[in-house]
Amino acid sequence: MNKKIILLADDDTDDTELFCEALTDIDENILYYTAYNGGEALKLLTGLNEKPKLIFLDLNMPVMNGWDCLKLLKKDKQYEDIPVIMISTSSHKKDIETASSLGAIGYFVKPNTYKDLRHILHSLTENLENGLQDAIADMQKKGSMNIFGFNGII
């Protein structure tokens, strides 16, 4: 089976460890890479032989934040088609709208429990090849307050 490659850029080491632990628990075929900021994420991307199936970008990071990284990804022909989900501890409507307008496919509010994190990541990773936006919309319809999709649902 092909590896499911995921890139996470987040400067919070505790959140990164939980995120990676959840991915490892979910599927042994998930290969994840982590970066401390947007600049590191872009540099890491250039060194990969295969593009990630999904990128998670934290909004607030040092050196290069998630917004600036997202803008650069969407301007680059090599990376513009990679789905990006912005992540944050806040659910401010303005941030959610900005993520949508800059080309992210979703906005993920970091959950308070490992169980919720694992559930959401499981739903996303099961639908990496196709149906990712539908999976996000489905979680939203079921009442998740941690994920917001942008195929008409804000």
Rank of each mutant, 00 (worst) to 15 (best):
N2D: 12
K4M: 09
K4I: 08
I6M: 03
I6H: 13
A9P: 00
D10H: 04
D10N: 04
D14A: 06
D14I: 02
D15T: 03
T16S: 10
F19D: 06
F19S: 04
C20S: 14
C20K: 13
D25L: 02
D25R: 04
I26T: 14
D27V: 05
N29G: 05
I30G: 10
L31A: 10
T34A: 14
T34W: 08
T34L: 03
G38A: 05
G38S: 02
G38Y: 02
A41Q: 08
A41P: 00
L42D: 11
L42P: 00
K43L: 11
L44H: 04
L45C: 06
T46M: 05
G47T: 12
L48W: 03
L48M: 14
E50N: 10
E50C: 03
E50R: 01
K51P: 02
K53L: 13
K53T: 14
K53S: 15
F56T: 10
L57S: 13
D58E: 14
M61V: 11
M61W: 09
P62K: 08
P62R: 10
V63S: 09
M64A: 13
M64T: 09
N65V: 00
N65M: 02
G66W: 02
G66M: 05
G66E: 11
W67C: 06
D68F: 00
L72W: 08
L72N: 15
L72Y: 07
K75D: 15
D76I: 01
D76G: 02
D81K: 14
I82R: 12
V84R: 03
I85F: 11
T89H: 01
E97R: 06
T98V: 03
A99H: 09
A99C: 11
S100R: 15
I105C: 15
Y107I: 06
K110S: 14
T113K: 07
Y114T: 02
D116F: 13
D116P: 00
R118Y: 15
L121M: 00
N127T: 08
E129N: 09
G131A: 08
L132Q: 04
Q133F: 01
A137E: 10
D138Q: 04
M139I: 08
M139A: 10
K141H: 13
K142V: 03
K142E: 14
G143Y: 10
G143L: 03
N146D: 12
N151Q: 13
G152N: 12
I153K: 15
